[in-house]
Design a protein around this nucleic acid. Sequence first.
DNA 1: TCAGATTGCTTGACAGTGTCAAGTCGTTCT
DNA 2: AGAACGACTTGACACTGTCAAGCAATCTGA
Lengths: 195, 195
Amino acid sequence: MKDDVRSKILDAGLTLLSEGGLQALSMRAVARIAGVSHQAPYHYFPDRESILAEIVKSGFETLHQYEVRAVEAEQDPVKRTSEIGCAYVQFALDHPALFQLMFRREMVDLDNFEEAHTTAISTFELPQSVIAAAHGKKPEDALNETIACWSMAHGLATLMLEGKMPEALGETRKEQDQRVREVMALYTSRFIAAR
Amino acid sequence: MKDDVRSKILDAGLTLLSEGGLQALSMRAVARIAGVSHQAPYHYFPDRESILAEIVKSGFETLHQYEVRAVEAEQDPVKRTSEIGCAYVQFALDHPALFQLMFRREMVDLDNFEEAHTTAISTFELPQSVIAAAHGKKPEDALNETIACWSMAHGLATLMLEGKMPEALGETRKEQDQRVREVMALYTSRFIAAR
DNA sequence: TCAGATTGCTTGACAGTGTCAAGTCGTTCT
DNA sequence: AGAACGACTTGACACTGTCAAGCAATCTGA
């Protein structure tokens, strides 16, 4: 394999993230796990941020898959809206450190990485069209609605990951999913009320 | 002053946070700015996290003040709800690095710092009672509603700070405040629709 | 065929970090 | 006077990201 080391480096990054969290992700550790010298990664990437950007890009691709699956499972635009929000939170709970990495500018500034930036944007567009449909609007006219719903899902995910939610949120993952569903439904319930 | 050095250390921390962001906040830098040796801080605090916890505590106190001011400016529970959400986001925009510090468990795990934890909880209780009033419920029966609203404000703040919001959100601070108001109103609009 | 360039790394060094351990110096207590 | 203590300082260690140089194998072109 030509890019054997390169992909080993990225794999090592993902492994460290999932096993030790964000703070375990150092470039020396990545090299160690990939079984190469501490400078080998910089042969393939100009700097640390470029390595992280590649990992972030793969993260947004996975998030996009979560969203697509949620949308495919439902037809009704209102139900789709709450489902896609749940999918977002579930992605965060499934990949906590990766999620944090994806949304910390001091780790990766997406403005400097066009590819990753484009991938990130695509995870925004699908929710936008779903939410717009729920409101009976065109996507470009539903910016505030998209932001409101996205913020709610993102805030919920962030606060849960950081352990800032009251314990009452549920102990098992199943209970948590249920609670997330209830909370997201509080956004979509405005449609029901408006009918 | 007896606690001269101690408060100089905390001040130095806040200064570094506001001037250089989270990544500028190192204990060596704190000591440097406070004009003491790199080990002096550990004479007053057992470890790095304890210093940060004290800073975080002061942050939650300030956040609480923002909330109180918002509630005092409005009587109507529904308007209060969106105002308190705006106040939350405004605090984050006014003190970006402090806000990040307050909500990152790997920086400060509030479970280990009872005082700071209590202060943090108090910033949750005021919104809870306001939101409950808007719903005509008792605070303890409005947990989901509180979480929904809090998540929205928190997500909005986080995404804005991390530069993840579409540029369309507004360039000047005044435009941004207006946009935040519109978005928060999308949560409270469910009350209006329900009437 | 064989010098020279390129590829794919490794090794070494440097300044920065948090923290453990020990040292210093002035005051205070006995 | 001497011991103890408070308020630090100094030094060291392992860790980090990154700059610089080195080095063996492979490819290129004459």
